[in-house]
Each structure stands twice: as C-alpha cells, then as structure tokens.
Design a protein around this nucleic acid. Structure first.
Lengths: 207, 207
DNA sequence: ATATCCATGTTAAGAATATAACGAGTATTG
DNA sequence: CAATACTCGTTATATTCTTAACATGGATAT
C-alpha cells in the first residue's frame, strides 16, 4: 500500500467489480481474465496487469474466484467500510441520488442534508431533516461526515466548500458546473453536461 | 474531417469550452494557451496540441480570441446544431436532467418522454406528455429523435434499446447500471456509482 | 520604422499506458 | 499417473499520450 497507482487503473476498478457481482448473481463462481476480458471488451492482459498492482488474486490454470475477487476489489476501493455522506442541494438531482444510495448502496449512509430554499428548509427527505446553510455549517463541524455531495448551484456550493477545513470531510462528489479543488480533499467533478457534449461530438462522427 | 481523434482529446473539449465561455462572461476577450493552461491546470502544450487536431484558431504573439475559440469548439462538437432528445425514465433523475436541459442547454430539445409507471403515464412533464412503453415505441419510429437518454431501470432500458434500429437515433446517454452497446449508435455510459466508488478509493488513499 | 517580445503551430523527445510474450504452476483428461 | 491444456503473474515490447523544444510570424513599444 501507499505506492502510486494511476488514475486509469483506479477508474477501471468499479467496472471490474460491477461485472464480477453480476457474474456472481448469475451463479458463476470462476472466471478467467480471458473470459472476463471478452465480456468487458478489454484485453485479458490489461485485467491481469491491473489486478497485479494490488496483489495476486488468481490461480494458474484456474482463473479467479468470482466472489473472492469481487470482495478483494471492494476492499481495495474501501467498500468494506461505511461512509457518512451529506448533500448540499436537495432538488431533483439530489433527491435522485439520495434515493439511489438508500436503495442500492448500503455502504453509504446519508447523515445530513442542506438546501437553502425556504420551502425545503425544515422538511424531511428520506427521514433526514433539511437544514439551511447556517445550520448545516454547524452540523459539518460535528466531524462525522466523510463525503460531501454537491448537487446545488455553483454559488452555494462554492460558499460551503470554503468551510470544509477541519470538518474531517475527505471527499467531494461534485455535480456543479464548475470544477472545484480543495486542499487535502479529493474532489470528483462529474459534469453531466460534458458527457452529453462529448456524446454530441461522437454522433456527428459516426463512421 | 474524418480522421480519427482520440477519446482523451474529445473528452477535454467540453471543458475547454466551459472555461472559455466563463472567461467570455467575465469580459475577457483574448487568452493565451499559457494563461488558459494555468487556469485549467493543464499544460499549454496540451491545449495547443489538442486544438491543432482541428485547425489553427490562434494567432502568434496574440493568443486566442475567447469568443471565437468558444464558437469553434462548439462547432467542432456540433453544438451549433440542435438535437431532439427523448427520455426513457421520468423519475427524479430523469426530471432533474430534463429541467437542466430546458434551462441551460438550448441546443437540446426534449421531444418525447417514456415511463412505464401507471401513475406517470398520461401526465405531463415540462409540457411533454409521458408515454407508456408501447406508445413510445411507435413514437420512436417517427424518426426525428437524435439522442435517447436512459434514466430508467436496466430492464426497461434494455428492452427499448433493442428497438433502436431504423429509428434514426444516433446517440444514447445511458445512466443505467449496466453498460450497453448498440451497433451504429454511440453510447455514453455515465455510471454515477462508479464515480462514487473511485472517489471512495481516493479518500482512503489521500497522501 | 525597427527592435523586442510573445505565443502560435508543429516537430521531436519523453512518459505513461496498453498489449504481447513467456515461464511456472495448477487443473483436467485419458 | 502421465500428459495435455489452462491461465496466472510478470517481464518485455509496442503503442499512445503528454510534454518540451523551436522556428515562424504577428503584436507591441520606443
């Protein structure tokens, strides 16, 4: 541990995990890098090379245990632990993500919500009280939030993001339309519109 | 035109455009690759190299015209045209995207909606009637839809995706939790949970 | 008008990433 | 129980992507 592994590799890990869990659900108990590569449309070599950054999970002549490798990948990503997550912005996008996490991601626990719209402040979403900006800033200082999801207009997100220091927040899942960078915190900028624009390029350049 | 340009380059174009439009809003009319690179935290060399795939947009000793380069990038991506887009899945995520597009993306026009839940079928969202699966399949055959956004459970999405041939749909913006590939159609798989999982890896490996 | 500065487009070098090759060890088959 | 087929981990090669270098020509200043 501790040694650097490239972004390209890390970004592929969730996808490997997804395919393995699907195989597991289908009752498949072993898989070779060749088989998995064909399913995922990547080379067997890449799979073996990627996994090898973290250790040897397979066996010669046999392949990989589907459940075991899935577990190992979860451990590598830290999905064997549970994370407290808070949302700034409880509009439709925020609510969509909250609903998804509650239903599908048991390792993420929603512990606090913030929205500055007067009609939302004081209401509850998924059993959690929606706080206004000031109350939320106090709540952040409690120190138990691991990840902050930003699903609010950039202005509000920027303001609150300025107050992260000393809160223990380690990650930001940013859906705002500006890139943000915060010292000591890992920011994942999602940018849905960028993906639509790239898609638009491609549909104009289909062979 | 017609010559291959790598994914890595294409994925960066929307971000360049975003920064340029923001500069334009701030009243900046010219920018050098060095200045832009410092803002965006990329090398000046990469910017020049990326742009050069599409032609020469700058001037020696001067730099790039902010508005002109923004326009050129939009033209490269095809954002000078307008696209008809349809949604399968009008839950919170679908509605969030519909609202965003209507308010912020004038080049995408929402022309059809589909949701199989009985309580939604027949209602209107953003002035568009929500159709059930069968009615929507007929609607697709009209041939005027450019992009299909999949914001529904994989099962339904897969079923409808099987009927794309001959509809003229060129792109799919897929928010489902399985990868899909369709012959002759460009699919942009978004996978929000993958980004959360990668973020989780990183917060466990902050220096 | 002349000289200096700037910043491009482009070519060359370097770094990172992906693919192929292969030796070693396990499972399977007859 | 021997022989064959598999498939891993790993090393080597090939490819792709990024960064640096530089010559050219326009902009700016005096």
């Amino acid at each position: 541990m501790g040694n650097y592994i490239s972004d390209a590799v890390i970004k592929r890990l969730p996808r490997y995990r997804r395919y393995l869990r699907n195989l597991e659900k289908s009752g498949v108990s072993r898989v070779s890098s060749k088989e998995l590569g064909e399913m995922m449309d990547v080379t067997a070599s890449q799979i073996r090379q990627d996994l090898n950054h973290f250790g040897g999970f397979g066996q010669q002549g046999y392949g990989y245990g589907v459940a075991e490798l899935g577990n190992s990948l979860e451990q590598i990503m830290g999905l064997d632990k549970t994370y407290n997550i808070a949302f700034i912005g409880c509009g439709r996008l925020g609510q969509a993500l909250i609903g998804y996490l509650n239903g599908n991601e048991p390792h993420y626990k929603i512990v606090a919500l913030c929205d500055n719209r007067p009609e939302l402040a004081g209401t509850e979403i998924a059993g959690i009280k929606v706080m206004d900006k000031e109350e939320f800033k106090v709540r952040m200082r409690k120190g138990d939030i691991d990840i902050l999801a930003l699903t609010a207009p950039a202005r509000i997100a920027d303001e609150v993001a300025g107050d992260l220091e000393g809160t223990g927040i380690r990650g930001v899942w940013n859906f705002g339309h500006t890139d943000i960078t915060i010292k000591g915190v890992h920011v994942m900028n999602v940018h849905l519109s960028d993906s639509l624009h790239a898609l638009t390029y491609y549909i104009n350049h289909l062979d």
